[in-house]
Amino acid sequence: SQDILRLTYELEKANREHLGRALASLAEDGFRQPGDGDRTYAFSVSEGVKGQTRLQFALVIAHEKKDRSDRSSANRIPAEIDDVRAIDERLDKVLRGAGITPVSRYPAEFSSGPKGLTATLHAMQRAGAEVTLSTKTHLRDRPGKSGRYERDGERREVTTKDHKELTAEGKVVGALMQTRQPRDFMHLLLSGPANVDRDRFILAGRDFLREQFEGHRYAYAVHNRNDLEKHPHLHVIVALRNASGKMLNPNIRDFTEWRVRFADKARERGIPIDR
């Protein structure tokens, strides 16, 4: 998943303190839309081209969890062009409102997961630039226990050019990033021996799918149906959520069980195969 957005601008001459205040006001108002102000962001300021000021701005667009037990993902911003444009327009507006003029913007960049966040912070720190990280994620000390990662209403800021400190802060924020999006479909392959009766094999596959995935939408295609020298197989796409909203979450034990059941259906059709 795309979890961190990085935007880089060339600005007319601007100082770091002025930029920091403008970005803080954007955080108060919202990054993607009004009210979307709880996200972790970071920025660095360095010398740009032709005497201009270069601003690098990174925003966590992944859902940031309240704690490690939080399984929601409602606050993710899709890495789509319309969403990037909306963030860019709000950032442009707040900069111009502060008297800072953007001259140009480089192509948007994305990175994935905690490692991607840390790599982004390190990239922003190159050439000795200080990086400011602003977040509502905290690592709370607990006497006699390991620290607890949690998010609350208190925003904290860290400004540093130290590589190790940026790595440590990236790990804190990354601990509560929801970096995986729920899967909607599964790709399943049902394969048979080359010398099998094609028609009976397809019927066995149909029998298995009807029984195993009752209530789920699925579609399949037959490969090598007429090439008798190759193994026939069914490529199956299964919707993991059924009509009542129940979600399949298959694991190794499920796959083993499905092999057994498919072999049973094949033998019922006179095809002597095992799992």
Rank of each mutant, 00 (worst) to 15 (best):
I202T: 13
I81M: 07
T118I: 14
K115Y: 04
Y149H: 15
R85Y: 00
K115P: 00
R183K: 11
K93S: 13
L188Q: 02
G144D: 10
A194N: 07
D199N: 13
T135N: 11
T135A: 07
L176I: 09
E154S: 11
E89Y: 09
K164W: 10
E130R: 15
E80C: 03
G147S: 11
G128C: 12
K164E: 13
H138R: 12
V196R: 01
E154A: 11
L91R: 06
G192K: 06
D199R: 15
T101W: 02
P114N: 13
H187S: 12
A108L: 05
E109V: 08
R148E: 12
G192H: 04
A79M: 05
S191R: 15
A86W: 01
D83E: 14
P107D: 04
A108I: 05
V84S: 00
G128D: 11
A108Q: 09
K115C: 01
H122G: 02
A86T: 07
M124L: 10
V103D: 01
L166P: 01
Q181H: 08
S191T: 15
A129Y: 05
Q181T: 15
S191V: 15
T135W: 09
D83Y: 02
A168T: 12
K136I: 05
S112G: 10
G116H: 09
G144P: 11
D141W: 15
D83H: 12
A98T: 10
G97E: 07
T132M: 08
T179L: 00
T167E: 13
R96S: 04
E109S: 07
G153C: 08
L166Q: 02
A108H: 08
L121N: 01
A129I: 13
T120V: 10
L91S: 01
